[in-house]
Design a protein around this nucleic acid. Structure first.
Lengths: 233, 233
DNA sequence: ACTTGTACACTTGTATACAAGTGTTAAAAA
DNA sequence: TTTTTAACACTTGTATACAAGTGTACAAGT
């Protein structure tokens, strides 16, 4: 290594995280071309580390590599999302029931703290940072998983549901008003602390499936070019 | 390309599938060293395509690349398995209930056909092809998913539960007698066709969790070097 | 005007030389 | 004998040259 001026300030793992986060946050749009040379130049490295990164992204279905043509950010698979939501509903239902059954002051305190954060952001109206809201929304659910000792499952779900994450991001970004989402979380928290698990089934179902309807009606008309249906093709 | 004698008979995708299948079928043992040069030589290609493959495998947590040291087949994460089984139990419970509710002749015919295959293999005793049994076992569950219109979810679960697959393979390989597994499937099929969904919850739970107990008692003592616990470390 | 063909500027795929870290082995020094 | 040191045979990481396919732009021919 020639000491200075040649070495890139980025290491391969950082570049991978960067690109991945860029795709998941919709900074790189579904369908967009990502060229090895362009990315390599941007990060001041050769194509070698970029190719390793591209291979990983392609393997996660975030990038589609077409030999001799180009590499493109994958479209969001609508059918994929539907199945993930079905699974998430089943899991979340069970987790939240357990949380309600073993609810204590600590859990209530954590959930209320999270809800305050959600309110603070929602109160900003259109000036709210929607990406930040996504994080806090996620945190709400994670608190429940962690409370019943399933933090690892939460992490597994996160890592494996990359398509779902882009869908959620798009859903939140297209929300004019965040308060509706906050209200749903508020309701869930109430049910957990009151232990009234009867209402929970329908509540969770609605909370997760609502997003699917919103996407169907609103986003599919605005960004049909972002989506893809593996069944209809 | 110099026409002949130089080009490898393998393409990169084939090599990837090969190595992946090798790891999942336990042909490559957990903890075993896989060197880029060795694999490259075996497939008569340079390190470049192998590195791409290794990157993908590492990203799926099937290979651990230690820079300047070597690349090793990952150990099976015990805590990971536990969480996957928890999730699988929830999903399978719901799927099988739906299957029981919408049971028809076609479903019964498919399940019985599958069970006959299981019996044929189990009757061979110790001469049975255990890897083949794994496939048929899988097929049994897939039939149920497909019947309720969730074939895509089945595929998603398959792709994402690579650790679980190694666990199942090890479980089946260590079974002296396959008939116990066949009996469990037989019972599940009966419940589906009879529509007696009350027993289903416990049945599925046992069917999936039994493997966990078997591994705890039997395999952990025979192959402790195959396993790893992310919680205790 | 239309068609055809060619050159060129892209794209990813592969092979290879070298960089740099690690661990072992064996020889040399204490 | 013990310790230290140096050489060597590995490992993966990076940069680079070239191979080969694709699409476009533009000019020549019909």
């Amino acid at each position: 290594m020639s000491s200075y001026s040649v070495a890139s300030p980025y290491n391969t793992e950082t570049i991978y995280q960067d690109l991945r986060e860029g795709i998941l946050s919709l900074k790189y749009k579904p369908g967009q071309l990502l060229s090895e040379n362009a990315i390599a130049a941007a990060y001041q490295v050769s194509r070698s580390p970029i190719r390793a990164v591209f291979s990983r992204l392609a393997n996660e279905n975030l990038l589609m590599i077409l030999p001799q043509k180009g590499s493109y950010v994958t479209l969001i698979d609508y059918d994929f999302i539907r199945e993930i939501i079905y699974m998430r509903t089943l899991v979340e239902r069970d987790i939240l029931k357990q949380a309600a059954a073993s609810c204590d002051d600590k859990l209530i305190k954590n959930l209320e703290s999270n809800l305050r954060k959600q309110h603070r952001l929602a109160d900003l109206g259109s000036r709210a940072d929607h990406e930040r809201y996504y994080q806090i929304d996620n945190e709400f659910h994670q608190i429940c998983f962690r409370h019943v000792g399933r933090d690892l499952l939460w992490q597994i779900l996160q890592e494996h549901q990359v398509h779902y994450r882009r869908f959620r991001m798009l859903d939140i970004l297209s929300q004019q008003i965040l308060s509706k989402l906050v209200d749903e979380h508020e309701l869930i928290a109430q049910v957990i602390s009151s232990g009234d698990t009867n209402k929970l089934d329908q509540l969770i179902e609605e909370h997760l499936v609502n997003g699917l309807h919103r996407i169907e009606q609103l986003v599919m008309t605005e960004h049909p070019d972002y989506f893809y249906s593996s069944n209809s093709n």
